[in-house]
């Protein structure tokens, strides 16, 4: 049995009946209405609880929760810079390890959590993340993927999906929007040989919370890639975040799965997958796409999904 399976063998999990009441991330923060990213972070924090140190990358979730002298954080939280949350958490974890061993403190049960947006994770902070995963620190990393640099005004990242319109991948006479395929971060995390990797979505809160909780229970690094709808950047309705998130799963665009000790497990198989057009429709960032472009995207989505099924042994 691998170390993650071993650590999770008695895992009970949350259900709608036993939702923890704790809210480490309090309401009253300054996120936009309908923000799916802060909802995902709230769910994740509920799963983690209060015995945690949180390291934040620069980005929406940092800005909206920490306008001095206010803070939305009821747990210890540190923000240092855009690209280094994984390195900061490495230091926090090492400090606790050393101080516990040297009996300077007696706090062996603390969880160490770092989070960043897709820009902080896939682009500018990929090196720091890779280093922290490779070194094997005992921490959880959450990538809150809203598929662009939202905090600075919707610029593209390497996690922006093909065809999406952003302020630096605008469609035009010579452009159909984002010209590159979305970088597969969970796969990169898996390639580090870490014990636990998962994808999650706030549209499936129990699943999300269980995955984040599991991530905190496995020894060593754990990576959870969280789909984080952003009505402001995706130009969908303020009440449509969760609908879009659900459609992302049902259209196979954002499949939910876990990789435990390197083994893939599909968390949810849409019984009747819908075409990608259903997903694109509420989001104006895809509105300019032509039929043949949509068809091209559909075939890659299908291929990637089949590849995932294969890895899950389905």
């Amino acid at each position: 049995m691998g170390i993650a399976s071993e650590a999770l063998k008695n895992f009970k999990g949350f259900s709608l009946k036993n939702m923890p009441e704790v809210e480490p991330l309090s309401p009253g923060h300054r996120a936009c209405q309908g923000c799916g990213e802060v909802l995902a972070l709230r769910q994740a924090m509920k799963a983690i609880g209060s015995n945690v140190v949180v390291c934040s990358a620069t980005g929406c979730m940092e800005i909206i929760t920490s306008p001095f002298p206010q803070t939305a954080w009821r747990v210890p939280w540190i923000h240092v810079a855009f690209e280094n949350a994984a390195a900061v958490v490495s230091g926090v974890e090492a400090a606790y390890k050393a101080m516990n061993r040297k009996k300077i403190i007696n706090q062996p049960e603390v969880t160490f959590l770092a989070y960043g947006g897709d820009g902080a994770t896939a682009d500018i902070g990929l090196q720091a993340l890779s280093g922290a995963l490779e070194r094997g620190h005992n921490f959880v990393y959450l990538c809150l993927d809203n598929e662009a640099y939202m905090n600075t005004g919707i610029q593209r990242s390497s996690s922006t999906p093909f065809g999406a319109s952003t302020t630096t991948s605008p469609p035009g006479r010579k452009s159909s929007g984002q010209a590159t395929w979305k970088k597969n971060l969970p796969k990169i995390a898996v390639a580090h040989g870490i014990p636990y990797v998962a994808t999650a979505s706030p549209a499936y809160p129990v699943d999300l919370m269980n995955k984040v909780k599991k991530a905190s229970l496995v020894p060593g690094p754990a990576y959870v890639h969280i789909y984080s709808p952003c009505p402001t950047g995706w130009r969908c309705g303020l009440d449509e975040s969760l609908e879009v998130a659900r459609l992302a799963v049902e259209t196979k665009v954002f499949p939910l799965y876990e990789v435990i000790d390197g083994k893939y497990f599909l968390s949810r198989k849409p019984s009747n997958p819908r075409p990608i057009t259903a997903y694109f429709k509420p989001q104006r960032r895809f509105r300019h796409l032509k039929e043949d472009e949509v068809a091209g995207i559909q075939s890659i989505v299908d291929d990637e999904y089949n590849d995932l099924l294969c890895r899950c042994g389905i």
Binding site: A94, M99, I104
Partner: peptide, 16 residues
Amino acid sequence: EHSAMSACVGSSAAGA
């Protein structure tokens, strides 16, 4: 080195 100083910040902030 960027991560060196970042880890130092985390470590020092944790009280080490």
